[in-house]
Amino acid sequence: MEPTPIVELKSLSKTIKGKKIIDDLSLQLYPGQITGFLGPNGAGKTTTIRMMVGLMKKSGGEVVIDGQTLSADFEEALSKVGVIVENPEMYKFMSGYKNLLHFARMQKGVTKERIDEVVKQVGMQNRIHEKVGTYSLGMRQRLGLAQALLHRPKFLILDEPTNGLDPAGIREFREYLRLIAQTEDVSVFVSSHMLSEIELMCDRIAVIQNGKLVDLRDMSETQEAHYYVEAFPADQTFELLGSLGFKTESVNDGFVIQAEKTQIPELVKTLSTAGLELYAIQPHRQTLEDQFLELTGGGQLAETAAK
């Protein structure tokens, strides 16, 4: 059974000065799921997110959050959303607590007790009454997370959340997100260009390029098994692999074949009886990076980066 999505983008479009930045983008996000949002620089990630949180006006289409359309009932729709847009810029001249109080006052039904609870959740009890200006980046990120969680959002949207965090901080952040997605059934939408990050964190990824959604896939999907084979001489190896019926692809000095684990011992035997010198045979896992570059086209990426 298909669960009901908490957030739905319906053919969302944005045109700036006659140029289509976002083109007919549709996407569903589900409770308890972390969805990664990937795309090369300038693909429209930030624009999409800003249209979802009311920072930018859309040119066409609709954003529906928990049954409410953003354009029709802005306040009701956004009250379900927790937002961290890039680095959470706080009021540096006020204490962390006053910042939280400030954002709590802009939501309905956030009590003082709830503020204290969230402060404890992100582990900031000791320094919450100090000025934000004295905080480290990691602490500011935590405070940013705290303000996004105050009103128990059903949907959490994060734009480049781990920018500037150290590895320990990133890990902590990632585990925290997983925890709230699972325990509170929150739907999380994370944009990032840190592919390894997304790979570790997300259940699902959406890839955007030139304002269009080019791919949407579950990370849990069982990948077809691939193995890397390196043997000498190469041309004979290639022929042999082909004759055995493997889908073969030349990579570096060897080949990547599509094969099941159970087929491997037999393959090793065959290769050695054929008199080939086997140097290596190992599982080949295509990283998200490879997939990503494959999808968006490396050349395209380099081109946009060079601009």
Binding site: G54, E89, M106
Partner: peptide, 14 residues
């Protein structure tokens, strides 16, 4: 200039 406008305008307040 502080960048807080993004925080301020992503609240459920018109």
């Amino acid at each position: 200039s502080q960048g807080t406008i993004k925080m301020l305008l992503t609240r459920p307040v018109k």
